[in-house]
Design a protein around this nucleic acid. Structure first.
Length: 358
DNA sequence: TAGACGTGGCA
DNA sequence: TTGCCAAGTCT
């Protein structure tokens, strides 16, 4: 079943990226790009790569440079151990291999900053070695295509993925009717993961292997790869308006969708900016510096997230809107809202307000 | 082996 | 603003 490999290679030739500045069989260029691309997006790397290569055109020139100068060409890229390892690696290649990048896997993977995947990538691109890579793109593609469940960073799933990658490749290589261009296939895995089998909203309509894809067949594109459990509950922020008029508080009914659906609550906004717009739309002349009184913020815990609530008090003496019984929005007396359907944190807030001197 | 390592894009 | 992730490796 080497169809997968063949289809991906065909896709690569037609739709893949062919103009990246490091695409060649020169180990120095490939190695440098692989290091820069670790956990870093292509768009970010391109300029750094060009500048770096211009200053250090060969491994020997890199090896003989001062570390501080090497670092200066890396500044801003992040993960600076990569640059230190790169420099040290260049010196090792010069000293131990006469300036010629090694060809054997054991030698390559022993170099600083080069792990299993990078070593395989260098060998596939430069030497056409029949060996698979395993990066974020391949993980996403394989978990979906083969329906591999579980968090991909765990040892067990990682092992499965490598094993599947080898199996897939070996089946193609074992088929005497199939020629596998390793550089093309390796680039295909990464381009495909980055351009078609994307994290969110994968372009299954443009996918040549969608017909045999587990995730597509079972409609599990969103569930795969399995995302790891969050450690801390996420925090959302909201700003609540306490619009007070003559011992009355303005309440509105929550939308039917989302939290507290249908309950009465204070007008809520993503930020103060939105709150000001709201007041202006109500025809209120607002001086944000003077009329907006920030009360103490607090947090409300839901099952799946924390809500950070910033209450803002606005006292108005302007014309009073009447309580509209159909929309339920309007001014409620500060001492007669207790029987209304109001969410806990809001009633707590109103309680505080009613017993505070305003 | 889980955590650290940087920065930027995206929802 | 927060969280997640991106051509991973090292300790």
């Amino acid at each position: 079943m080497s169809n997968f490999v063949q289809k991906l290679c065909a896709w690569q030739q037609a739709h893949g990226r062919h103009d990246l500045p490091w695409q060649s069989t020169d180990p120095y260029r490939v190695w440098l790009s692989e290091i820069m691309l670790q956990q870093t997006q292509v768009a970010t790397v391109i300029d750094y790569y060009k500048r770096f290569l211009e200053r250090f055109p060969t491994i020997s020139e890199l090896a003989s440079a001062e570390q501080s100068e090497v670092m200066s060409y890396w500044a801003g890229l992040g993960y600076y151990a990569r640059a230190r390892n790169l420099h040290r690696c260049a010196q090792i290649v010069v000293e131990q291999y006469g300036g010629v990048f090694p060809r054997e896997y054991e030698d390559i993977v022993a170099l600083p900053g080069i792990g299993r995947s990078t070593a395989h990538a260098i060998m596939a691109f430069c030497y056409g070695a029949p060996t698979p890579i395993m990066d974020g793109n391949v993980k996403r593609l394989f978990t979906r295509y083969y329906g591999i469940k579980g968090v991909t960073s765990t040892a067990a799933v990682e092992k499965q993925l490598w094993s599947q990658a080898e199996k897939t490749l070996n089946e193609a290589l074992g088929d005497e009717h199939t020629h596998v261009d390793m550089a093309c296939y390796t680039q295909a895995l990464m381009d495909f993961g980055s351009l078609i089998c994307t994290r969110s909203k994968p372009l299954c309509d443009d996918c040549p292997v969608a017909g045999s894809c587990y995730a597509k067949t079972h409609n599990l594109q969103k569930e795969l790869p399995t995302s790891k459990a969050r450690k801390t509950t996420p925090t959302r922020h909201t700003v609540m308006l306490l619009l007070v008029h003559d011992n009355h508080i303005w309440l509105e009914q929550r939308p039917q969708q989302g939290i507290w659906s249908g309950l009465l609550s204070l007008p809520s906004f993503d930020d103060t900016e939105a709150l000001i717009h709201y007041l202006q739309n109500q025809g209120m002349a607002i001086n944000p510096a003077k009329d907006l009184i920030k009360l103490a913020a607090f947090e409300h815990i839901f099952s799946h997230f924390k809500l950070h609530i910033q209450p803002i008090l606005v006292k108005t003496t302007g014309a009073q809107s009447l309580l509209d019984s159909s929309s339920k929005q309007g001014y409620y007396h500060l001492h007669s809202w207790q029987t209304l359907p109001i969410p806990k944190p809001v009633s707590t807030l109103l309680e505080t307000l009613a017993t505070t001197d305003i």
